[in-house]
């Protein structure tokens, strides 16, 4: 992916993204770049604008102003389908899974393998099951017993793993994960973090939003800090530590700026 064709250092770059919800300025001109094959963490307090920012990449939020570039070329993302076509996949905080459908159907949702018969799209259920199983195995999610199990009957960690696998399944360039370990226990979180490491080894660029700095430091290459809709810090993981990041998140080092 990182070939000579690309004019930019970044696979995904945004400049001057602004978004207001009524009187609330959620994003005040944010610039951000995601390098090829890196895990970029976006951190910040609640309401800092993290989710709004990544939703602008995935087409769920349309920014008021600002430009989005992919491989150095400007793109317009007006809805989730646009983002998907550009290879951006988002796994949502609220888990974009349908409880009453099984694992295989959830993985293929919206892009089912079908054959036409009498003008109707019939599902190739067997083929979908097999491909879903193969895909999960390729991500190190071993020995899925029953790919036809309903998602409702899975644990929180299993659901998260399926949700992320689903993103990977369809977007082969950029995966955005919003709080992937949000509601998970220690063991289940580890599964998800392992999966993110696997993604990196598969040449996928990942943006991860997380409140858990331990998780961020264990997987991310770079970290971007948002506060009150502005970018207040950007560091390589190896050049920073938890204390500094916490200070940036809470604004301890930028007390003067807030008075403006």
């Amino acid at each position: 992916m990182n070939d000579s064709k690309s004019k930019s250092e970044y696979i995904l770059e945004v400049r001057g993204i602004k978004k207001s919800f009524g009187g609330l300025r959620a994003l005040k001109s944010v610039d951000l770049g995601l390098k090829y094959n890196e895990v970029l963490a976006i951190v910040g307090d609640n309401g800092a604008g993290k989710s709004t920012l990544v939703k602008a990449f995935s087409g769920a939020v349309i920014p008021d102003e600002g430009k989005i570039y992919i491989d150095g070329e400007e793109v317009k993302i007006k809805n989730p389908q646009d983002a998907i076509k550009l290879g951006i996949q988002m796994s949502y905080q609220d888990l974009a899974l349908v409880d009453c459908l099984n694992i295989s159907t959830n993985l293929f949702m919206g892009r089912e393998i079908c054959y036409k018969f009498l003008g109707m799209n019939f599902l190739r259920l067997k083929k979908m099951s097999l491909e879903a199983k193969g895909h999960l195995e390729s991500l190190g999610i071993r020995t899925i017993g029953n790919i036809n199990e309903k998602v409702r009957n899975l644990s929180g960690g299993q659901r998260q793993v399926i949700a992320i696998s689903r993103s990977v399944f369809w977007g082969n360039k950029i995966i955005i994960l919003d709080e992937p370990t949000g509601a998970l226990g220690v063991r289940e979180s580890k599964k998800v973090l392992d999966l993110i490491k696997t993604l990196k080894s598969k040449n996928i660029s990942v943006i991860i939003i997380s409140h858990n700095l331990n998780h961020v430091f264990s997987i991310a290459d770079r970290i971007v800090v948002l506060r009150h809709g502005e970018k207040v810090g950007e560091k390589e993981i190896k050049d920073t530590d938890g204390d500094e990041v916490v200070k940036m998140i809470t604004g301890a080092e930028f007390a003067g700026k807030e008075l403006k």
Partner: peptide, 24 residues
Amino acid sequence: RFTKMGVSFYAIGGNEEAARVAGI
């Protein structure tokens, strides 16, 4: 049970946001 249309009905009723994001 066996068509893409059927899945979309379950998806909309089960999690409309998920269905929308999936491009249904």
